[in-house]
Computed example of a mutant assay.
Amino acid sequence: MAAVAPSRLAALTRMRCEIFQTSYNPTSVRTGAKYLRARLRGPSMINYYPEELTVARFNRMGGGFKIQDWDEYERLADVEEKKRRGKGAPKKAKSAAESRRMSRKR
């Protein structure tokens, strides 16, 4: 039995890829097709983890109920304490002239 020429096998493979709509990759380079064909993981992960109900989200839901957010209350108290001691965030500049960067001498 005679061996089939490699060029004929390559032509057969190319034709098979055209018919079955697959990618023709005779040199076997990495294409990432395996990952592109894979099912997306994002929607499954979103459905797996439940939505976290925070105090702020509960208060925004309505219904007339309000819960005191102690963490937020403590954070605001700390910010006020730092402002009183002069350690708070600097005031924002209203214009370019008030900016500290613009007033610096070169």
Rank of each mutant, 00 (worst) to 15 (best):
M1A: 11
M1G: 06
M1H: 07
A2C: 10
A3T: 10
V4Y: 09
A5M: 06
A5T: 11
R8C: 03
L9S: 09
A10N: 03
A10T: 07
A11T: 05
A11P: 03
L12V: 10
T13S: 13
T13V: 09
T13D: 12
R14N: 08
R14F: 07
M15I: 05
C17G: 06
C17R: 03
C17P: 01
I19V: 13
F20S: 05
F20R: 04
S23A: 12
Y24A: 11
N25L: 06
N25A: 12
N25H: 09
P26I: 15
P26N: 14
P26Q: 15
T27S: 11
S28P: 01
T31L: 15
G32E: 04
G32H: 02
G32F: 04
A33E: 08
A33Y: 02
A33W: 00
A33C: 02
A33T: 09
Y35W: 04
L36G: 10
R37K: 14
R39M: 14
L40M: 05
G42M: 06
G42N: 04
G42S: 03
P43V: 03
P43Y: 00
P43D: 00
S44V: 04
S44G: 08
M45P: 00
I46V: 14
I46D: 07
N47G: 15
N47K: 14
Y48G: 10
Y49H: 13
Y49I: 14
P50K: 12
E51K: 14
E51C: 03
E51D: 10
E51M: 15
E52K: 11
E52D: 03
L53S: 04
T54P: 03
V55F: 04
R57H: 04
N59W: 02
R60G: 06
R60Q: 13
M61W: 02
M61K: 12
G62Y: 05
G64M: 07
K66W: 10
K66E: 14
K66I: 12
I67E: 07
I67F: 11
Q68W: 00
D69V: 02
D69G: 02
W70A: 01
W70I: 01
D71L: 02
D71Y: 01
E72S: 04
E72W: 00
E74I: 01
R75D: 03
R75H: 07
R75F: 07
L76N: 06
D78W: 01
E80N: 05
E81G: 04
E81F: 05
K82N: 03
K83G: 03
K83F: 04
R84I: 07
R85C: 05
R85M: 13
R85N: 14
R85K: 13
G86K: 10
G86N: 09
K87D: 07
G88V: 05
A89D: 05
A89L: 13
A89F: 03
K91E: 01
K92R: 09
A93C: 15
A93D: 12
A93M: 11
K94H: 05
S95W: 02
A96T: 10
A96S: 13
A97W: 06
A97M: 08
S99F: 02
R100Q: 09
R100K: 12
R101G: 04
R101A: 15
M102Q: 05
S103M: 14
S103C: 05
S103V: 09
R104V: 03
K105I: 09
R106T: 07
R106A: 15
R106H: 07
R106L: 13
